[in-house]
Computed example of a mutant assay.
Amino acid sequence: MIHHTRQISKRFRIVMIVIIICCLVGCGAQKKKVSQFEEDHGIIVGFSQIGAESAWRTCNTRSVQDAAAEKGVQLVYANAEQKQENQIKALRSFIAYQVDVIVFIPIVTDGWDNVLQEARDAGIPVLVTDRKIAVEDQSLYAGFIGTDSLKEGRTAGQFVLEKFAAKRESFGQTKEPITIVELFGTEGSSVANGRAEGFREVLKSYPEFQIIYSKSGDFLRSKGYELAVEFLEMYDDIDVIFSHNDGMTLGAIEAMEERGLRPGKDIVIITIDAQQEAIDALREGKVNCVIECNPKTGPEIIKLAQRLAAGETIPRLQYVHEEVFYETDNLSLIEPRGY
C-alpha cells in the first residue's frame, strides 16, 4: 500500500524525475491528463529504454507508452542512447524520487547488481524486459518478460538444416562446406548471446556447416552495411547470412545489391525481428526466413507493473508469442506489421 505522503506528491515527483533524467541522460516523458481518482490512486513507473536504433525499438517504446496511457499509469521514459552508464543514472534517478515500479531493458547482461540492490533497499520492485541480465542474487529483480532468444537461434539453425538438405547429403563426397556469415548483435547482450548459442546448438553435429565470419553490428543498419562490405571483400563463396536483426540485414542487402549480388538467391538470408521492411524483402525473395521478435509487449508489461505495485508476486520468466515466416508461406496473408 502506498503511503499517503507519497500519494499527494505524485505530480511533484513526476516533474522532478523528468528534470533530473533530462539533466543526466536526455529523455522524454509521457504523462496524460488524469482524473482526480487516477491522481490519487495511479502508480508511477520508471521506464528505461536502451535507445531508438530501429523501427522495432521505436515500436516497443510506443507499445509501453500507449499501454500506460490507457491504464492511467504515469510513465517516466528515459532513453539511454545505447550507453549503460546512462541507463544506470536513469535507474538511480527513479530510485531517488521513489517511483512505484522500475521497468528496464538492459543494454548488456552484466553490471546491474549494485543499482538493483539500491532499488531493493528503497523497496522498489524491478521488472526486466526484452533482454535478460546476470546477477548474483536473482531476487534483485521481480521477473522477466520478453523474447526467447535461444529459441529464435534454434529456429534459424533448423531452417538452415532444411534449406541445405541436398547439399548436406553430398558433403561426404565433395567435402564442400556450407559457409555461414553471422551478423552478431550487441556484444554482451542476452539476445545476441542467445541467438548465437541456439543457432550453434542445432548445427554443432553437422561438420558441413562452417561459420566463417561473426562480428557485432550492434543491431544497427549502418553497421550491417559496413560488415557486409567487409565480408564480401574477404570471401567469394558465402552460402548463408544469419543476421541477429532486420536492421543489420537490410544494411547487408544494400551492400550485396551494390556488388550485383542477388540477396536470397546467391546467398540465403535468415533474419530476426519481422519489421515491415523485412517482410517486404521476404515477399520480394531477398530474404528466405524471417523470425519474429515481438515488440508489442506494452500491455503485458503494464499489467505486471500494476501487480508489482500492489505487492503481488509475478512469474519469474514469461515469454511473448512469436511467429516465423518462411519463403514458402502464403505471404499475402501476413498483416501489416506496424513497425
Rank of each mutant, 00 (worst) to 15 (best):
Ile2Val: 15
Ile2Ser: 15
His3Pro: 05
Thr5Arg: 15
Thr5Cys: 10
Gln7Arg: 15
Phe12His: 08
Arg13Ile: 04
Ile14Leu: 15
Ile17Ser: 11
Val18Asp: 15
Leu24His: 12
Gly26Thr: 11
Cys27Thr: 14
Ala29Met: 11
Ala29Pro: 10
Lys32Ser: 08
Lys32Gly: 12
Ser35Asp: 05
Ile43Glu: 12
Val45Tyr: 05
Gly46Tyr: 05
Gln49Asn: 12
Ala55Val: 04
Ala55Trp: 09
Arg57Gln: 14
Thr61Lys: 11
Arg62Glu: 12
Ser63Ile: 00
Ala68Phe: 07
Val76Ala: 12
Asn79Lys: 03
Asn79Glu: 04
Asn86Lys: 07
Ile88Phe: 12
Leu91Pro: 04
Ala96Pro: 04
Ala96Met: 14
Gln98Tyr: 13
Phe104Glu: 05
Pro106His: 01
Ile107Glu: 09
Gln117Met: 13
Glu118Ser: 05
Ala119Asp: 08
Ala119Met: 14
Ala119Leu: 11
Arg120Glu: 14
Ala122Thr: 12
Gly123Tyr: 01
Gly123Cys: 06
Val128Glu: 06
Arg131Lys: 10
Val135Lys: 06
Tyr141Phe: 11
Tyr141Lys: 05
Ala142Trp: 10
Phe144His: 07
Asp148His: 09
Thr155Phe: 15
Ala156Ile: 08
Ala156Asn: 09
Gly157Pro: 00
Phe164Arg: 11
Phe164Pro: 04
Glu169Asn: 14
Ser170Val: 07
Phe171Leu: 06
Pro177Trp: 07
Pro177Lys: 08
Thr179Trp: 11
Phe184Met: 14
Gly185Arg: 00
Gly185Asp: 01
Gly194Phe: 00
Ala196Pro: 07
Leu203Cys: 01
Lys204Ala: 01
Tyr206Ile: 00
Pro207Asp: 05
Phe209Ala: 01
Tyr213Asp: 03
Asp218Phe: 13
Phe219Gln: 03
Ser222Met: 09
Val229Gln: 14
His244Ala: 08
Gly247Met: 11
Ala252Phe: 02
Arg259Thr: 03
Arg262His: 10
Gly264Met: 02
Lys265Met: 05
Ile272Gly: 06
Asp273Ile: 00
Asp273Ser: 07
Ala274Gln: 08
Glu277His: 12
Ile279Thr: 08
Ala281His: 02
Leu282Ala: 08
Asn294Pro: 02
Lys296Pro: 02
Thr297Ile: 14
Ile302Asp: 09
Lys303Asn: 12
Arg307Thr: 04
Ala309Leu: 02
Gly311Phe: 00
Gln318Phe: 01
Glu322Cys: 09
Glu322Met: 11
Glu323Ala: 13
Glu323Asn: 13
Val324Thr: 14
Glu327Gly: 14
Glu327Asp: 13
Leu333Lys: 15
Ile334Lys: 09
Gly338Pro: 03
